[in-house]
């Protein structure tokens, strides 16, 4: 993360140390790194004399900011009520175990990032897993693993 810090200290100086600088600084960080790592928030917080939570609170209000490193593909496992009762949690567990990744993180080979969501709005098809834009319905552990093969 050293890189993030050095490029950042120059960037920081070009913004006044006040609350209004949060959004432009975060946008810059995201543009450079593709996401906003914890270290960047730490540096920004230090500079603006705010806490990381204050920055995070503002930033996470806008869905354009992401705080996790993106993988090439993005898996979202639904844990809404309908999906939950139909085995969503098992799908999540399996994904975590088989791909060795935790929700909010991305695999070591950057192939997948994993997220959990609460209801994707298609409960009739539960349990549902979304990969990139695509909804996969009535997923079970077997076709779940099969499905990954289509994404490289």
């Amino acid at each position: 993360m050293k890189k993030a810090e050095t490029s950042f200290s120059e960037l920081l100086q070009s913004f006044p140390p006040e609350e209004g600088s949060i959004i432009p600084l975060l946008q810059n960080a995201q543009a450079r790194l593709g996401y906003i790592p914890e270290e960047a928030v730490e540096v920004i917080a230090d500079y603006l004399k705010l806490t990381e939570s204050q920055i995070f609170g503002v930033a996470s209000f806008y869905s354009q900011f992401r705080f996790t490193e993106p993988g090439r593909h993005s898996i979202s496992v639904c844990l809404g009520t309908a999906c939950h009762v139909n085995g969503g949690a098992t799908l999540l567990e399996t994904t975590e175990r088989e791909l060795n990744v935790k929700p909010g993180e991305c695999t070591a080979d950057k192939r997948f990032d994993l997220n959990r969501v609460a209801c994707l709005g298609c409960c009739a098809l539960a349990p549902v897993v979304k990969i990139d834009g695509e909804i996969h319905s009535k997923v079970n552990v077997i076709n779940l693993k099969e499905m990954w093969n289509h994404y490289d």
Binding site: G57, S60, F61, A118
Partner: peptide, 11 residues
């Protein structure tokens, strides 16, 4: 300022 409301809406 330890706590923040994170995300919005349902999440």
């Amino acid at each position: 300022s330890v706590l923040a409301l994170k995300q919005r809406g349902k999440q």
